[in-house]
Design a protein around this nucleic acid. Structure first.
Length: 674
DNA sequence: GTTAGGG
DNA sequence: CCCTAAC
């Protein structure tokens, strides 16, 4: 067994600063479309628009490798560079169609040819060594951008200039990268701020003001009320991306797992399926909402946002997202997220969802919005101009083996980002800290159109009950297939192991007590925010964990389905191969309890492994039996000790007999009865 | 909510 | 792992 270093990255947030502005024409068009409705637009429409745009943008991301991804560089990157200055950028993929292609790039400080655009890259030096800030840029195709801008940005043409020129075409996502357990992203925060600055917060503000002024004048002249809103969507999530390699070791010990509770806390939809899922399944991507987010906010968030936003009081609210939901194949409305969810959302919007921070990335947004909004607008007109400066998706947690390639890292991050952005997100609107739940109210009715309320308008990304699932599924997306063999990950894992001599396939018991460990793996997988925060300072951010060999390929992230399937955001749980220790525990439990009592088995041996449902155990047993029966050469994935397989066969045979006996017993009875 | 089994 | 039927 080999110990591998595992790198955990906590993404404290993705920032998607303002999206590129639509061209004038586009904007005009958009204005025409939406503008007519102006403040009369229903809140629901507003939500739908924003959500739609957001989701659209993420369609069809692709990941590519950057210059730094060579094998040779890999270690350097992982060990050294990451600590210092590592950046991840999401860019349009070359090959991808404009509208969809996104590329995730890893940029090392120093040689980032791509940096040009992002001068604002955070400077890590200041930060603690453990923190690895990553900035990702989301560039959307103009088309997308235009659409986005057009939709998001509603206003009179006159004000157009004011909008965010700098942001043009760039949908930026800033990702904070943290080493595991370092929840504090102070550095990152600063970085972000920097990046934000880079975005020219000042300019923004000024522009915003200009806008306001213009709008005022315009409004008066045109009788349009233009409202400029700078707001950021904030979501606090912890997404833990776990390596999906064949090896089970990954399972647990090192991975924090989302707690079921959290899921349960979500607003329950009436969909039974969903409930089921939430109850019994754990997802890799775990939303953190709840207090944790708040606590975190103190650490990373606050620092990040506040640092610059000092002047303004921003409302912080935690928002939760990523509650994995199963696909609702049958019910989903393909078209617009918001629409499809409508009913459910209303409920979902409720408190359960986190709160939203009303700040922009830099924290200034708040202020900006504040400036802009101030009561300068005449209330006559119906047009509401909204500018969303950034969307935040804080806390992305990624855990990846050191032996993973840069490419896999990119893919993993891409996957996570895609999952978040493309996955079940919905937009919540807050006014003065209160969630606006009635989607049918017009903006005017809600008060969004009122000058005095503008400064208190906020947006939040929230888990979309119907389609939220951050879980990344590789298998789901066709794209993956293209890159990877359709075969199960396990297969690849093997290959990978071969490729990486250093890593051993066998997972050792990192903690010593395999059973206990794996049993508790869940906890690991979903570390509470608090925990992480506590560990922040630890230099060991790179926790050395025994990790089974991980297949890089397995990690490949697959972009979610494009638009076509946007609606079906729900994804299957990520694959979590059983570790030998888990198998051991399973075998032991089955030996004692027999087959057919999976719930008991679960309670007995996997009670603490939230991510293992009794169905999972049953399935695993099924596969174990199958595995035991086939030749070793045919087996894939982490090899299971023959001894265990033998026990499997023995136990299986024994309990099969018992069952047969039982049935025989009964048969006569039934016969007699008959 | 559990089991069992096919996919 | 997912999905369903059946209980």
């Amino acid at each position: 067994m080999v110990l591998q270093k595992r790198l955990d990255y906590g993404f404290h947030g993705y920032q998607v600063p303002t999206k590129p502005r639509a061209t004038r024409s586009a904007r005009k068009r958009s204005l025409c479309r939406k503008g007519t409705e102006g403040s009369q637009m229903r809140a629901f429409d507003l939500l739908a628009t924003v959500a739609d745009k957001l989701l659209h943008g993420t369609d069809g991301p692709t990941t590519t490798t950057t210059d730094t991804s060579t094998e040779n560089d890999r270690h350097a990157v992982m060990n050294k560079e990451l600590d210092a200055n590592s950046l991840l950028k999401v860019e349009p993929s070359d090959r991808g169609s404009c509208d969809q292609g996104l590329v995730l790039e890893t940029v090392l400080s120093g040689h980032n040819k791509n940096c040009d655009r992002n001068d604002s890259l955070p400077q890590h030096d200041e930060h603690s060594p453990q923190l690895v800030p990553i900035v990702t840029n989301f560039e959307k195709c103009k088309k997308e951008m235009e659409n986005l801008a057009s939709e998001v940005h509603l206003g009179s043409p006159s004000s157009k200039e004011s909008d965010n020129c700098e942001l043009d075409r760039e949908h930026k996502v800033t990702v904070k990268y943290e080493l595991h357990k370092t929840e504090e992203v102070l550095t990152g925060a600063q970085n972000q701020d920097d990046s934000c600055k880079r975005e020219d917060p000042v300019i923004w503000d000024q522009k915003a003001r200009l806008l306001v002024n213009n709008s005022d004048s315009c409004g008066k002249m045109t009788q349009d009320k233009n409202i400029v809103l700078n707001s950021s969507f904030t979501t606090q999530n912890n997404v833990k991306v776990v390596d999906r390699d064949d090896d089970e070791n990954s399972s647990g010990c090192t991975h924090p797992v989302s707690s079921i509770k959290s899921f349960r806390t979500l607003p329950s939809s009436r969909d039974r399926r969903i409930r089921k899922v939430s109850a019994s399944k754990s997802w890799k991507v775990v939303p953190r909402y709840r207090d944790e987010s708040l606590s975190k906010s103190d650490g990373s968030w606050k620092s990040m946002f506040r640092s610059k936003s000092s002047h303004d009081s921003c409302r912080r609210q935690k928002s939760q997202m990523n509650i994995p939901f199963k696909k609702r194949k049958f019910f989903d409305c393909p078209s617009s997220v918001s629409n499809s969810d409508g009913g459910i959302n209303s409920e979902g919007l409720s408190d359960s969802t986190g709160k939203v921070i009303n700040t922009d990335n830099s924290g200034r947004s708040c202020s900006a919005s504040g400036h802009g909004h101030q009561k300068s607008f005449p209330s006559k007109d119906s047009h509401v101009k909204i500018r969303i400066k950034s969307f935040r998706v804080p806390e992305l947690f990624i855990e990846i083996a050191e032996t993973a390639t840069v490419g896999s890292l990119k893919r993993t991050v891409m996957e996570a980002v895609t999952a978040i952005l493309g996955g079940g997100l919905r937009v919540g609107v807050l006014l003065q800290g209160k969630k606006i739940r009635d989607d049918n109210k017009t903006l005017f009715q809600t008060g969004i159109s009122h000058d005095n309320q503008l400064d208190s308008l906020g947006f939040a990304l929230e888990p979309n009950p119907s389609r939220t699932s951050l879980a990344l599924s590789q298998e789901d997306s066709p794209c993956i297939l293209l890159h990877d063999a359709p075969e199960p990950l396990t297969r690849y894992s093997r290959n990978a192991s071969a490729d990486n001599p250093g890593s051993s396939t066998v997972l050792s018991d990192p903690h010593g007590d395999s059973l206990v460990n794996f049993i508790e793996s869940d906890h690991d997988s979903a570390p509470s925010p608090t925990d992480t925060s506590n560990h922040k300072s630890s230099t060991d951010s790179k926790a050395l964990v025994t990790v089974p060999e991980m297949t890089v390929e397995a990690l490949n992230v697959v972009p979610m389905h494009r638009k076509s399937k946007r609606s079906e955001v729900a994804q299957r749980r990520i694959r979590r191969p059983f570790s030998v220790a888990e198998v051991e525990a399973l075998v032991q439990a089955v030996e004692k309890l027999g087959t057919g009592r999976w719930r008991d088995v679960k309670l007995r041996a996997f009670d603490n492994a939230k991510h293992r449902t009794y169905v999972d155990l049953k399935d695993k047993w099924k596969t174990l039996v199958h595995t035991a029966r086939i030749s070793p050469q045919q087996r894939r994935g982490e090899p299971v000790p023959q001894e265990l397989l033998d026990r499997v066969l023995t136990a299986h045979a024994y309990w099969s007999k018992q069952q047969a006996k039982y049935q025989l017993k009964r048969q006569p009875e039934t016969c007699l009865l008959l």
